[in-house]
């Protein structure tokens, strides 16, 4: 099976990998590169657990053909924290926005994409931004509150 070389920016650092024929981006990130933040949920585009940003726009990495990301800029939840946690991560903790945590990396990236474009979203815009991400624990309310708290200037509960 031919392998295709791909080079892309992953969380600000250049990354080179070989993509298998037909391999999806999620599989390349997890098994090829070792970034375990994006999760495999449904494999069908229904859950959003695999959400990553490609050139700043949220995509379902399980449905992206890995070889097509050559030259693109990819962000995953692994890149959120620097010396300190990202304000969204702080807010998710403060608002109990994660329970089992499986949806969290996808939720965080969907929220980041929103706030990067629109730092002061309305509640409706937050709901829309995470409408492609399923959470089966929280009932969404703490997640919405966490994202709004960052938009309103801090991670305070």
């Amino acid at each position: 099976m031919p392998k295709k070389p791909v080079t892309f920016m992953l969380n600000g650092a250049e990354q080179a990998a070989f993509a298998d024929d037909g391999q999806n981006l999620l599989d390349l990130l997890r098994r090829g590169v070792g970034d375990l933040a994006p999760k495999y949920g449904c494999g069908q585009g229904g859950c959003g657990a695999c959400t990553v940003l490609i050139d700043g726009v949220p995509h379902l990495s399980c449905l992206v053909l890995a070889e097509t990301v050559d030259g693109r800029r990819i962000e995953t939840a692994s890149g959120l924290a620097g010396a300190r946690l990202h304000p969204l991560q702080e807010a998710f903790m403060a608002h109990f926005a994660a329970q089992c945590g499986y949806c969290t990396p996808g939720m965080l990236m969907a929220a980041k994409a929103l706030l990067d474009q629109n730092p002061r979203p309305s509640r409706e815009e937050v709901v829309e931004a995470i409408s492609g991400n399923l959470c089966r624990c929280t009932g969404y309310e703490p997640i919405i509150e966490a994202i709004l708290s960052v938009a309103n200037g801090g991670a305070r509960a």
């Binding site: 959003g48 959400t51 995509h59 379902l60 449905l63 829309e128 492609g132």
Partner: peptide, 9 residues
């Protein structure tokens, strides 16, 4: 159609 991710793709 879909959520933001599906609409981007």
């Amino acid at each position: 159609v879909g959520g933001p991710q599906v609409r981007a793709m």
